[in-house]
Amino acid sequence: MAHEETVYEALDHAHSDEGHWAFGTGFDEPLAGVDTTVPEGVDPADLGEYCLMLGDDALVLAQRLTQWITNAPELEEEVAIGNIALDLLGQARLLLARAGSVGVLGRSRERATESIPDEDALAYFRDPDEFRCTALVEAENGDFAHTMLRLLAAATVRLAVLARLRESRDPVLAAIAAKGVNELTYHRDHAARWVLRLGDGTEESHRRAQAGAEAVWPLLADVFSATPTEQRLAAGGIAVDPAEVRGEVHAVLTEVLGRATLTVPGWPADAPPRGRLGEHGPELAELLDELQGLAREHPAATW
């Protein structure tokens, strides 16, 4: 008996902080204790806008993954998807809070009561045209293969961006990126393991994985062209120009699909940015309706 207690105590001890074990579930203000001074020479409006881009990507993808909870192919996969969604939600909270702290709140404050924290004002009280996520994360899940192909693509892009962002002149972004890199590595690897198994599994899973790839690849057109905001910030050593990671992403995805015996779909030409500028399809409006409905029904409530 004593022996088992030792190992459980040790496990407990290893993550005894209030965050329990999942990033983002803590009770503290997400940015408590972090120096949030805007670095010199940086337009706070630009910085906040950039945080929204990265934060909205994480929030919307977390919401998509959460749609799998109680519906996943196995119980072990419920736990894995839950972990990934929690990581992304944690990143979203930090980034939205950062946007709020530099005063970028869009029209959300016209609707959200003062008692609502910035991260929630931004998540719950902006309309779709104020969201800055790309088409890659907002598209619907499709089947499990489609979901894993999208996760593979989205995590590969985000990992490449965050890896570079660790060098950002903005200490907050650099800190968020440093934490995020470990998480994203795990997300990408999880998705890659599934893509291998589905691509090289049965005839049916191969067909579904191929269809997932065909559906996801065109969405990459919205990912690599920088907005003027990103260009300005990248020039100032704050942000990453997404065009810079295109080659790396292409190489990773091509390798995984090849090993999965899948045909790599044609790489889409970069299109002018849409999602980053607030142009979205009806799927995002639907997703936000569900995410925001309750909070908007009770704008004066505290939760």
């Binding site: 496990l11 290893a14 993550h15 074990w21 999942a22 072990e76 736990v79 894995a80 972990n83 470990n182 795990y186 999880h190 393991r193 198994r197």
Partner: peptide, 17 residues
């Protein structure tokens, strides 16, 4: 897959374990 699921489930992805 087993070793990754084990990390998720029994250590909540604690890397030090």
């Amino acid at each position: 897959m087993a070793v990754h699921a084990a990390r998720d489930l029994y250590t909540r992805r604690n890397e030090g374990v």
